[in-house]
């Protein structure tokens, strides 16, 4: 599903150039559940953003389902983000002025799903993450766990094959975090490809495979199971 060769990403801040990724070779298959671990500044988030088409690499090759992402137009990338990838952020990134229902609806609106189907889909997703009774709540009226579940439901809106989660439990207590991890597990069981960035080895050990990053390079890449 994901193929990366010699992938590099450099940031320039003022005159200082910082290389976050220094040549990543990586391959992730369909229906895998992978955890990405590593210390702060090791390039985990940068890698995740590039996998999620939120950012572009400076050099190297990235193929998503055999399509070269480097050569895609911004519209093609937008469509991929909309339909093929579901992204869950540490900071939730919900629209603050919109209700849970409306937040989940956004990707469906971009995909031009018609009104009735949209309604059905949003309600189905709300039920799936256990928030059917919170549909009308705004982010400020929800707990962290509820916000993250809303974000997961949103990431699933267009039924993407690939779920990316960047420290999804980082802002949550252990109980809420446990519920979130459980949902990812279920998604993986249902055949989705799941990639989770985490600090928490307990979570990482629930994945099939752990990819360790250090200083912008893959340090370890081993199967657990």
């Amino acid at each position: 599903m994901i193929e990366m060769k010699e992938l590099r990403k450099a940031y320039t801040t003022g005159k200082v150039e910082f290389e976050a990724l220094k040549g990543i070779d990586l391959s992730i298959k369909h229906s895998e559940m992978v955890a990405v671990v590593g210390p702060s500044g090791s390039g985990k988030s940068t890698l995740m953003n590039i996998i999620g088409c939120l950012d572009v690499p400076t050099s190297g090759e990235y193929r998503l389902e055999d399509d070269p992402v480097n050569e895609m137009t911004s519209n093609q990338l937008a469509d991929i983000r909309n339909k093929k990838i579901g992204f869950v952020f540490q900071a939730f990134n919900l629209l603050p002025y919109a209700t849970a229902y409306e937040n989940i609806e956004v990707p469906l609106l971009f995909a031009r799903v018609s009104g009735k189907k949209r309604r059905e889909r949003v309600n189905e997703l709300l039920a799936r993450v256990g928030l059917a009774d919170k549909a009308g709540n705004k982010p400020t009226e929800m707990s962290g766990g509820e916000m993250q579940r809303t974000a997961i439901a949103r990431s699933l809106a267009n039924d993407p094959d690939l779920i990316l989660a960047d420290e999804p439990t980082g802002n949550l207590d252990s109980k809420s975090g446990g519920e979130i991890v459980k949902i990812f597990h279920e998604l993986w069981s249902a055949g989705k490809t799941v990639i989770i960035i985490t600090h928490d080895m307990n979570i990482a050990e629930q994945a099939q495979r752990i990819i360790r990053l250090k200083d912008g390079l893959v340090e370890g890449n081993g199967n657990l199971a």
Binding site: G52, L54, S74, N75, A78, D79, I80, R81, N82, K83, F87, N93, L94, L95, P96, V106, P107, F110, A111, R154, N158
Partner: peptide, 19 residues
């Protein structure tokens, strides 16, 4: 400030630039 973040979120969810 608010808008830029909002734009970021929408793009992450698949909004095209033209939208």
């Amino acid at each position: 400030e608010e808008r830029t973040k909002e734009i970021g979120i929408k793009m992450a969810l698949g909004a095209r630039k033209s939208m």
